[in-house]
Write a protein that binds this DNA or RNA. Structure first.
Lengths: 190, 190
DNA sequence: TTGTTTTTTTGATATTTATCACACTACCGG
DNA sequence: CCGGTAGTGTGATAAATATCAAAAAAACAA
């Protein structure tokens, strides 16, 4: 069921009519995730885009038993694994709730045939794709900052919410350093 | 003038009719760049997508006088600065030819009004955007590999063409290390 | 060719970061 | 309130990487 809250979120991106909401409704599913529950598993196909209504998702992959965090998705943000989504490959990445989260699953792969006859839906997916792209690019540019301490300071300035809500351990992997080093950066040892 | 070579490149992405080529022709411009010539300058708006017909482009930004290389674009590949393109901001990045290059400038921002009435064009731009996105994501994932030596080995295996055609200095900045360190990695000092 | 410039390599040293081991703290359920 | 567990901080040491300086090699132009 498409709630008024969801409509409000979507209307920020594309204006839908009530008739259109009726048409797209079957492709929206609402789920509640417990802390640490996995939304997209490694090896699974990725046919959906996820929209976080509340809570936080962690987007990571596992490298020899070691987690590498790629992104965190907060309220009103979208996430998916584009590589798996576009190329119809099994996902190499894992998406997990790190707090209790309310998430909308947009099963956009399923209505791809209908998109041609439904311009607004096509526009919605395209705009979401661009948002996800820009978020990836931003993290990418952050990672190109040579010193880890500078990367942390960049986040402090540009993404204070991230620093507040994400644990030191997760943040360290996101910045590309060890827990210990981030702990020392934080206490101004460097 | 839309050449048969360009048609061949575009047909890999979307099938256009001869009539359609007539319509989109005004938005395609062919340029020849000398070595080191700049295609997109810092601070300029970015209203085009670039398609490399021959040669190589370097996509980088300048950080306190130091170049940070973000990507290299080879034959048949597309590049643009999405952040500037989408948000209509001045570009923070610079695109430069590092060899003599033949490039198509696709002035896609200019025909955005016509896109609605021209589904194929819309599809072309969307598919190009996805290609650029996936390339960015791939570099991003490469950068998350912790050790620079492993990043180099990854490129050796997955992108041998890159290693062959890009100078050590440019590669080092792309991998995120100094020239000297890359030189030593290459001669197996580590 | 020759000289000039750019790029790459090498060495010595300083700095940064990882690793390992363990102490400390905060939080949660019984 | 207690005890367990997950998360964070600290110290000592090893490893990786940057920095600086200079030589060697390669590319380029006259």
């Amino acid at each position: 069921m498409i709630t008024s809250k969801l409509k409000c979120l979507l209307n920020n991106i594309v204006q839908f009519s009530e008739d259109e909401y009726g048409l797209i409704e079957p492709y929206f599913e609402h789920v509640t995730l417990k802390k640490n529950q996995v939304l997209l598993e490694e090896g699974q196909p990725c046919t959906s885009i996820f929209l976080v209504e509340s809570g936080v998702l962690r987007n990571y992959y596992n490298n020899d038993g070691l987690d590498v965090n790629l992104s965190f998705t907060f309220e009103n943000q979208f996430v998916t694994n584009f590589e798996a989504y576009i190329n119809r490959e099994p996902s190499k990445i894992i998406i997990q709730a790190i707090e209790k989260s309310e998430v909308w699953i947009i099963k956009s792969r399923e209505f791809s045939k209908e998109k041609g006859s439904f311009a607004n839906l096509s526009t919605l997916i395209r705009r979401i794709a661009i948002r996800v792209l820009l978020a990836t690019e931003e993290h990418h540019n952050m990672m190109m900052i040579n010193s880890p301490a500078d990367r942390y300071r960049y986040l402090l300035e540009k993404k204070p919410g991230l620093i507040q809500r994400i644990s030191l351990t997760h943040l360290a992997s996101y910045i590309g350093i060890t827990r210990e080093t981030l702990s020392r950066i934080r206490s101004n040892k460097y």
